[in-house]
């Protein structure tokens, strides 16, 4: 059964960082239904808001996104959050 999830990401605005995030979402079995990216108030930062739909565990997408080197923070459905250093889930 498909589920819709809201994801907020803070990422470095490095070459290709947006492509990496979108590629990963597709490859891990989710479709993007909403996407917004704005500059963030840290140097070279991006604040991304996404709505994705998929049948797989959203927690897996969450951890895969966090593995991307450019990703600083992932916030899933406003309740599951990882920031800066591994260890919180």
């Amino acid at each position: 059964m498909s589920r819709t999830s809201n994801i907020k990401i803070i990422a470095k605005n490095s070459l290709g960082s947006l492509e990496r995030i979108l590629r990963l979402v597709r490859h891990r079995g989710f479709e993007v239904s909403y996407f917004e990216a704005n500059s963030y108030d840290i140097e070279d930062g991006l604040a991304i808001t996404m709505q994705v739909t998929g049948e797989r565990q959203e927690s897996n997408l969450f951890h895969q996104l966090y593995k991307l080197v450019d990703v600083i923070e992932v916030n899933l459905n406003s309740h599951q959050k990882v920031r800066s250093c591994l260890g919180n889930d």
């Binding site: 897996n60 951890h63 895969q64 966090y66 593995k67 889930d89």
Partner: peptide, 8 residues
């Protein structure tokens, strides 16, 4: 080591 492997 990789949390993304859990419950995948």
């Amino acid at each position: 080591f990789d949390k993304a492997e859990f419950d995948k």
